[in-house]
Amino acid sequence: MIALPLFGIGTGIWAGKQQKKTGEINRELGRRHAWHWTVIPIFLVLANALFIGAPFDGDKVGQVVLLVVGLVYYLGGVYFWRGYWFGGLAIASGMFWLLILESYPWTLTGLLTFIALLVPAALDWRRHVRIQD
């Protein structure tokens, strides 16, 4: 639990190194990224604290995790990069797959998330290559 917020701090440090590599330092954007990704684990911990004392129900905990992470990625899409938008929706859709599917809801969620993050990244990369040409 204590280590989880380090994820966000680590993201900030990594982003700083990437910015130096590209030759463009934007402290304000870096700070916003670090805050954004630090808040996910904090919210996950708080959301799952709701289940303390109750009998463990993997599907319910999973639904909360998917909803929180989906929302964070969706907001990442609104504030940082449009590609996260689709990823966020794909992650949050897992909540419904857990409700309606008997088998492989997690596999389907993972697959949809993979596609939702990969396709915008590939399109973005192709656009960058075209601009550089």
């Binding site: 590209t22 030759g23 463009e24 330092i25 934007n26 304000e28």
Partner: peptide
């Protein structure tokens, strides 16, 4: 104006 700092090579590009 819209960033903290830019390297010379980035500005050149």
């Amino acid at each position: 104006a819209k960033t903290t700092a830019l390297s010379f090579s980035r500005l050149k590009m």
